[in-house]
């Protein structure tokens, strides 16, 4: 069974007329990494928000099935507990909530929702310590409020740490490469690659091919004006790098 199946998805912003997604079809199987590339305004971020269940969007047509269930019927936190993880393009700052508290609350809430035992504090600490070392995240950073005062690179690494701790089945990475220098990019990509497994699928949304040098996709899709206009293997990304998006934007129009 596929992990994610999107069929003819049409989406607009609530209260507005223009469709942002105009008929998306996408099937993602366990173990696969799909890259979705496209120019600004093509609907990439909208897709990630719709998958994670943000308000403000109206689905006018189509369906999204996650592990056989209707994803669109699920609440935001239900989706997260079921294993859908969104790495935000712009991670939100939460003053007053230490990162550690946040992670523990999230992990235990998910475990509880799945009918699993909550993790004891020592067990939780052990998990976080291991994963944060891999991502070169200092313990001191975890005591600070979520994303408050973090640099751009630190925020993205913190997102991947959350992903590593929460162990989702479907990872949606929204422009994770934006705002990263090359060293930070490598660390983040390593973290992501370490999470690749036969049970887990990833949807990597990006504007640039650069990230895909480090996270090599199985499939590449070009999104333009709310539609997937071309799909192919990893070589499609390189092709895009050379010719740009122009050819595709014309196709979509």
């Amino acid at each position: 069974m596929s992990i994610l199946e999107i069929k003819n998805l049409h989406v607009k912003i609530e209260g507005e007329d223009t469709e942002i997604l105009r008929g998306i079809d996408l099937t993602v199987n366990p173990g696969e990494v799909h890259a979705i590339m496209g120019p600004n305004g093509s609907g990439k971020s909208t897709l990630s928000y719709v998958l994670s269940g943000k308000d403000d969007y109206e689905i006018t047509e189509g369906s999204v099935t996650y592990k056989g269930d209707d994803l669109l019927e699920m609440e935001v936190d239900e989706r997260a507990s079921a294993g859908v993880f969104l790495a935000f393009q712009y991670p939100i700052e939460i003053p007053g909530v230490p990162t550690m508290t946040f992670l523990r609350t999230a992990l235990n809430a998910q475990r509880k929702a799945r009918g699993e035992e909550e993790l004891t504090t020592p067990a939780f600490m052990k998990v976080v310590r291991e994963k944060s070392q891999m991502l070169k995240i200092r313990q001191e950073m975890l005591k600070r409020p979520v994303n408050v005062g973090f640099s751009g690179g630190e925020k993205k690494r913190a997102e991947i740490l959350q992903m590593a701790v929460l162990e989702p089945s479907l990872c949606v990475l929204d422009e994770t490469d934006s705002g990263l220098d090359i060293d930070a990019l490598k660390i983040v990509a390593e973290g992501v690659n370490a999470l690749r497994s036969p049970e887990r699928a990833m949807v990597v949304i990006t504007h640039y091919q650069r990230l895909l040098n480090y996270i090599v996709p199985d499939h590449v899709h070009v999104l333009s004006q709310g539609r997937i206009v071309k799909s192919g293997g990893k070589e499609l990304a390189l092709e895009l790098e050379e010719s740009g998006y122009e050819n595709f934007t014309e196709q979509a129009a």
Binding site: V76, D77, A80, I94, A106, L166
Partner: peptide, 23 residues
């Protein structure tokens, strides 16, 4: 936005609100 971020990490709405108010 804060509420959405917390919920996107699997924290149920009332718990997320309580966490934010406590913070």
């Amino acid at each position: 936005d804060l509420l959405f971020y917390l919920r996107a990490r699997g924290i149920p709405k009332d718990q997320a609100m309580a966490l934010l108010i406590a913070a």
